[in-house]
Simulated scan of single mutants.
Amino acid sequence: MKMLAGGAIAVVLLVFYVLLVHSAVHVVNCVSTSGCTGATVASFNDVKSQAMSVLGGLVSALIISELAITKPGEAPAARILAAASDRAKNVFRWTTWLYVGAWLVTGAWAFWTGLSHPSVLPALTSVGQSWLGLAVASAYAYFGISPANG
C-alpha cells in the first residue's frame, strides 16, 4: 500500500509539472507571436512560476535518486518487484520508463523554449536550464560515470 501511495504521489507531481510547463510554453509562444491575445506573461503568475520550479525539482530529485541506485540496463525501481510475476515486472518497467520519458521530454521542451525566448518568461528559462543540469546528473548517476580526477 505504501508503494502504491508513493507511486500515485509521484505521478501527480509529474502531471502538475507537465501542465505548468505546458502553460508556460503556451504563454511564451503567444507572447512571441504577433496578434496573439490569448495568454500574457501576467497570466503565468508568481505562484505558478514557483510551483513549476518546486515540482521540477521534486520530480528531478526522485528520478536522480532512483537512477543513482539502479544498475545500468535495469529499469529504475525494478528491485521493488523482485518477487512479482513477469507481467507485473513488464508493466512496471514500461510505466517507469514512461515516467522518465515524460520528464525528459518536458524538461527538454522547457529548455528549448527558454533558449529560443529567454527573456519572455524567465521562470521557464530557469526551469529549463536547471533541468539540463539535473538531466546530466541523472545520466551520470545511472551509468555510474564519475568526473575524471585532475
Score class of each variant (00 low, 15 high):
34 S>A: 10
100 V>P: 04
136 V>G: 08
77 A>S: 09
104 L>N: 14
96 T>I: 13
6 G>P: 01
34 S>T: 14
146 S>C: 08
33 T>N: 08
74 E>C: 14
85 S>Y: 03
98 L>I: 15
77 A>Y: 01
75 A>V: 06
63 I>K: 00
105 V>C: 12
64 I>E: 08
38 G>H: 05
133 G>H: 06
92 F>L: 03
14 L>P: 05
109 W>N: 15
19 L>G: 06
52 M>G: 06
63 I>F: 01
10 A>E: 04
101 G>A: 02
118 P>D: 00
111 F>Y: 15
113 T>C: 07
18 V>W: 03
129 Q>T: 13
41 V>F: 02
29 N>H: 13
9 I>R: 14
52 M>T: 01
47 V>D: 09
20 L>V: 05
20 L>D: 03
74 E>F: 12
24 A>L: 04
90 N>K: 12
8 A>D: 04
73 G>H: 08
10 A>F: 04
63 I>E: 04
73 G>S: 09
133 G>A: 08
124 L>A: 07
24 A>N: 07
13 L>P: 00
115 L>T: 11
68 A>Q: 11
73 G>C: 04
85 S>D: 03
57 G>T: 10
130 S>I: 10
47 V>T: 13
46 D>I: 13
8 A>S: 10
125 T>G: 06
132 L>C: 11
80 I>G: 01
97 W>A: 10
110 A>E: 01
135 A>F: 15
123 A>P: 10
29 N>A: 14
72 P>A: 09
102 A>Q: 13
86 D>C: 02
62 L>W: 08
107 G>Y: 07
92 F>D: 04
40 T>Y: 00
140 Y>I: 09
75 A>K: 00
27 V>F: 05
30 C>T: 05
19 L>P: 01
89 K>A: 06
114 G>L: 12
91 V>P: 01
83 A>V: 08
25 V>H: 05
99 Y>P: 06
81 L>S: 05
105 V>K: 05
35 G>C: 02
135 A>E: 10
110 A>H: 12
103 W>D: 02
30 C>H: 04
74 E>L: 15
69 I>E: 07
113 T>D: 14
93 R>Q: 13
125 T>H: 02
147 P>I: 13
35 G>V: 02
138 S>N: 00
85 S>R: 05
139 A>F: 15
136 V>P: 10
